[in-house]
Nucleic acid binder design. Structure first.
Lengths: 260, 260
DNA sequence: TAGAACTGTGTACAACATAAACCAAGCGCT
DNA sequence: AGCGCTTGGTTTATGTTGTACACAGTTCTA
């Protein structure tokens, strides 16, 4: 395959992401628009996953030739990046939220919600720093949530990296468990059975004492088969954990300050 | 491409991961071994990234034809999964560690260390539940670390999912920032400049008040260009955050118990 | 000793990203 | 008014990919 991407042009990427480009005056009118191309890609990914998105496929869907897309997008890699950027729309922060913790919880949940609706976004490799409008807007939102804590810019950024790292990582793990069927073409139950067989066959008390005990106690129910709501209680549990950690950090940094 | 993976066989996958299979008596002796194939794949990925791993490439490296590999591995997807499993070796937990927090910190750092040494492992899509020996050993280790807390099996599993989710997510974000050059073929500085230009051009005080303020305060130094040590202070910071959260949870669950 | 099981090979195919050459379209200058 | 430059979409072509399939050689078993 030729996916190597020998060279990338950050400026061009930036132009595309922020949709700034002197609209050309000379040639014939474009029949398509970047927007259409990206949206078509998103539609395909929504329906069949990111693996189904090929240049050919997108072009066919639009009724044009494969190569015509390259007038709008430098490479498939860029197309995927643009798809992620456009798919990650950021709603405004609900004004009724007051404390940083509520805001940050909403922020994390909303980010997770993106991954829930567009699971394919997790399959797009993260090649460049996030610098599209939506990504930046999301960052701004997170920062504004933390603003009242009085932390430094660096500290706030660190916290956001931690939090979005958690959201992304957890979403990925959850997806791996929940989407086996779609990803492997083999029914869920077959995997569950295999997992169970693995636990009973290879996990013995000598090598895996703790695990063996939990398995014996049936502590694995509900983990081999994840809950239907995908990012459910588990995510919330971890989120509160992280928020607690942030809380403790914030408290420690300004030991005796009035909340206002 | 034919990467579709129409059907997967969990039992076969399990056999391969755990290296159990009745060694055949009939035919000619195999010239290769699964181990060799996987190790060759790992070597290539170590040197040039996972994108450089192709069946052809692995076979060439071994001096055999492409198709010969399919006698050892059902598909490329399985090969990648096996590579991850083998690359994620789990050292024994240092015996001098006593409390759950120290153990868990070591556990998270060791997991991160894997991702540091084998960044390509983050690029392998997570298609199936982790059920290889090393993955299971790592789980056992995490559980044993938490054993003393007296939490239930479900709670401990939840905590581990949270923690490994954090590690994975953070590592991915950090890699995206640190490896731009290798991934895009464009020098680091070009991206940094583009990022800076993005911040100054598109981030105005109206749409991004908090961000704009931080940029004005130079609070972005050290973030556009990540520290050389990759998962550095930032990771540690977030890790302690998560550990704090866990700590608070543990404390809350057994309010007045002696630490021993 | 015949056949079954198993090995590695050679050939073949469809799908992929994308480079290069091409022609038609349309504005901007002289 | 018209020439030319810029731009848009198509055509053609190239190299790479994963893997299905048929085959010929090897080794044990019945």
């Amino acid at each position: 395959m030729g996916t190597d991407q020998r060279q990338a042009d950050p400026n061009r990427t930036l132009e595309l992401l922020w949709d700034v480009q002197a609209p050309p005056t000379r040639g014939p009118k474009p029949a398509l628009s970047l927007r259409q191309v990206v949206d078509t890609g998103i539609a395909i990914a929504d329906a069949e996953g990111v693996a189904a998105v090929s240049m050919r496929r997108v072009a066919d869907e639009l009724g044009y030739t494969t190569m015509s897309l390259y007038r709008y997008v430098p490479s498939k890699t860029d197309l995927l990046d643009l798809m992620v950027e456009h798919a990650a729309e950021v709603p405004d922060l609900p004004p009724e939220l007051t404390g940083w913790r509520d805001k940050l919880r909403w922020w994390a949940n909303d980010t997770a919600e993106i991954y829930r609706r567009r699971r394919w976004a997790l399959d797009v490799p993260l090649n460049t720093p996030p610098m599209g409008p939506n990504q930046v807007k999301r960052m701004e939102q997170g920062l504004s949530a933390l603003d009242e804590t009085g932390l430094s810019g660096g500290e706030m950024l660190g916290i956001l990296v931690v939090l979005s790292g958690y959201v992304r990582g957890h979403a990925q793990l959850a997806t791996a468990l929940a989407d086996v069927e779609q990803r492997t073409g083999t029914p869920q139950e077959a995997w569950d059975q295999a997992y169970g067989r693995m636990l009973t066959t290879f996990v013995n008390a000598d090598d895996h004492p703790t695990l063996a005990r939990i398995v014996a106690e049936d502590g694995f129910e509900g983990y081999a088969e994840p809950d239907d709501e995908w990012l459910g209680d588990d995510f919330t549990f971890g989120l509160e954990l992280v928020l607690d950690g942030i809380d403790r950090y914030v408290e420690r940094r300004r030991p005796a300050m009035s909340p206002e």
